[in-house]
């Protein structure tokens, strides 16, 4: 190795160590794809529930308080179920990738990602509970999108830079949704479903394709 090559490897080593020590790079694109598929499946079930509810409404000929309350509760439970499924699958694929690369899943960088994502997420959760409490249901979907986007934006400093753009996309969709209220389910499917799948595939293509071929 010539002296110059030697110096250049030193510099690129320094860059690599700085990058690796400050960002959690094991985040798998497949985690996002799985979350996207869960969200789309959830949106499909929700659409089915909406149809069934309106069918009951038409058959009855009038609005019924008890039926609406039950329908609403089912939607909320469905939302939590989808979130749980997406989180569990997301952890699995990221854990698998970290293991394959012999890197720890819980290190200083992943802790930073979790803490920084959790702050806007919990704020959003509390805010949305307030909306549900006050029967402001139409604002739930846009608020989910905006707060989730902020969480991603906040955590993106400590993980793959693509997460930043996913976050911005979610915020934009949430804001757009406020101008098209009552279309929440479609925005929800677009934001949590298609966006996750799109960015997930993009991230997989950029960072994981080569390693899985080896």
């Amino acid at each position: 190795m010539t002296e110059q090559q030697n110096l250049e490897t030193t510099l690129s080593d320094i860059k690599r160590i700085m990058e690796r020590s400050s960002r959690f790079r094991s985040l798998s694109g497949l985690s996002a794809v799985f979350a996207g598929i869960s969200a789309l499946a959830g949106a499909g079930v929700a659409l089915f529930m909406f149809r069934a509810y309106y069918d009951r409404w038409v058959a009855r000929g009038h609005y019924d308080d008890a039926d609406f309350a039950q329908f609403r509760l089912q939607l909320i439970i469905l939302g939590f179920a989808v979130m749980f499924l997406a989180a569990a699958g997301g952890h699995y694929f990221t854990w698998r990738r970290a293991k394959k690369n012999n890197l720890p899943v819980f290190d200083a960088t992943s802790k930073k990602v979790i803490i920084n994502a959790l702050i806007p997420m919990l704020a959003g959760g509390a805010f949305i509970l307030g909306l549900i409490y006050n029967n402001l249901d139409v604002l739930v979907a846009p608020s989910c999108l905006v707060f989730y986007g902020m969480a991603l934006l906040n955590a993106s400093k400590y993980t793959l830079p693509d997460i930043r753009y996913l976050g911005i996309s979610e915020i934009a969709l949430g804001i757009l949704n406020v101008f098209f209220l009552r279309r929440g389910l479609y925005f929800w499917a677009l934001g949590f479903g298609f966006m996750h799948i799109f960015y997930g595939l993009l991230m997989w293509w950029k960072y994981e394709r080569r390693t899985s071929e080896e």
Binding site: D13, I14, I17, M18, R20, S21, S22, P104, D107, A108
Partner: peptide
């Protein structure tokens, strides 16, 4: 040089994290 590179971009790093990285 490696230790300094890590400390440049992280506010505070534990002994174990340095060892691992």
């Amino acid at each position: 040089l490696g230790v300094m590179s890590i400390l440049m971009v992280n506010e505070e790093v534990s002994f174990n994290d340095l060892k691992q990285m």
